[in-house]
Amino acid sequence: MKNVIEQLINGLSTGSIYALIALGYTMVYGIARMINFAHGDIIMVGAYALYVGVSLMNLPIAAAILLSIIVCAVLGITVEKVAYKPLRKAPPLAVLITAIGVSFLLQNLALLIFKATPIPFQSVIQVPSVSIGGITISGVTIVTLVMTLISMVILTLFINQTRAGSAMRAVSEDKGAAELMGINVNRTISQTFAIGSVLAAIAGILYICQYQSLRPTLGALPGIKAFVAAVLGGIGNVPGAMLGGIVLGLIESIAKAYISTELSDAIVFGVLVVVLLVRPSGLLGKLKNEKV
């Protein structure tokens, strides 16, 4: 029983990282109707930025975290402006291929700068682990859960309470109508990319504190899994992404512990396939019929 609870807490912690990344996918999809394939690699950039800040520039931890967040936000906006904006009217296939290109570009730039050998990285989170009723929860896990919770609350408030947030909701509902109402669509899209990237940076920092090793491809797998989470929750749906991330984290952790470590990835992707076939709109999404 103790073991089960520990696995569930592990799953919750991985799941909350997935949820943070999934939010980026889902927000960008909601507004720009595209899958930002490079999103996973923003996590990687965030992790490397933290490493550069802490280990190479000897910044204090708070400043390094800020640096990582700013780098990611700027990168997110730049990628959107350079690679996606000119393709607003292009067929989806073209946008998708460009996004894959950007993802590859970021990975290979990191490979060129930091080389393929994994860099060990000491966790910047120095919180002692807590033991409740014989169950030990590591400090990193606690910080991950708390940070995720805070981010989600802030994001929900932002989307529902601020002017910029309602502009975002308006653009995702009907771009043309939003523009007629005087909303600056381009700026709103940039903001969405920036917010998604900030969340990815936070996810990257938490991820790297858990796994403590930097590779140029570290963002690829969590990126894809977070996408699965976004689809599971219903892409374009913010609460759905949170729910999907956590459900997926739990599934993965249980599959790893009780079925097979090697097959856990296959099981996670199997979930995606089943969801898309049974309920393509996800757990919380609404099904839209396509009109001619």
């Binding site: 690679a83 073209a94 460009t98 950007v102 570009l105």
Partner: peptide
């Protein structure tokens, strides 16, 4: 691979934008 990715992006941008 870096050149491949740049070529991929450039090709789409030139053809589709």
């Amino acid at each position: 691979m870096l050149l491949y990715s740049i070529a991929l992006i450039a090709m789409i941008l030139i053809n589709q934008s």
